[in-house]
């Protein structure tokens, strides 16, 4: 024979049957907050799926951007040209006109 207690439990079970507790994780996160490192580690080790199509396209875009921007950047400083500091001295040598400092460097280079 079922005790009264058992009867009450059975009845409670029946009544609570459609109710599902779904916020366990929230409760746990509030009661037992995880360490930052652990979270990072979780993210770090998380598995993802990537389809190679978009990845390839992205790589191409990056590569092209680098290749295009790079020459533009190197080209820009040429626009104002060889801006000479005002104190530089011109010399004529071999029928050409040079900045003395650059010329002397070149002469030295070839003498070595």
């Amino acid at each position: 024979m079922k005790t009264e207690r058992e009867q009450i439990k059975q009845r409670m079970d029946e009544e609570l049957e459609p109710i599902r507790f779904s916020a366990q994780e929230q409760v746990i996160r509030q009661t037992h907050p995880r360490a930052f490192g652990a979270r990072l580690s979780a993210l770090w080790n998380r598995e993802i799926e990537i389809s190679p199509g978009p990845l390839g396209a992205l790589s191409v875009v990056i590569l092209v951007t680098v290749l295009v921007i790079r020459p533009l950047q190197t080209g820009q400083p040429n626009h104002p040209g060889p801006q000479p500091p005002a104190h530089r001295v011109l010399i004529e040598a071999g029928g050409n006109t040079y900045w003395k400092d650059i010329y002397e460097q070149a002469v030295k280079r070839h003498e070595d």
């Binding site: 040209g81 060889p82 000479p84 040598a93 071999g94 029928g95 050409n96 006109t97 040079y98 900045w99 650059i102 010329y103 070149a106 002469v107 070839h110």
Partner: peptide, 17 residues
């Protein structure tokens, strides 16, 4: 002609000596 203003390392070219 080869003679002229050669004021930058890029335009300096070979020394004509």
């Amino acid at each position: 002609r080869s003679n002229g203003y050669r004021l930058d390392e890029d335009t300096m070219g070979n020394l004509p000596f």
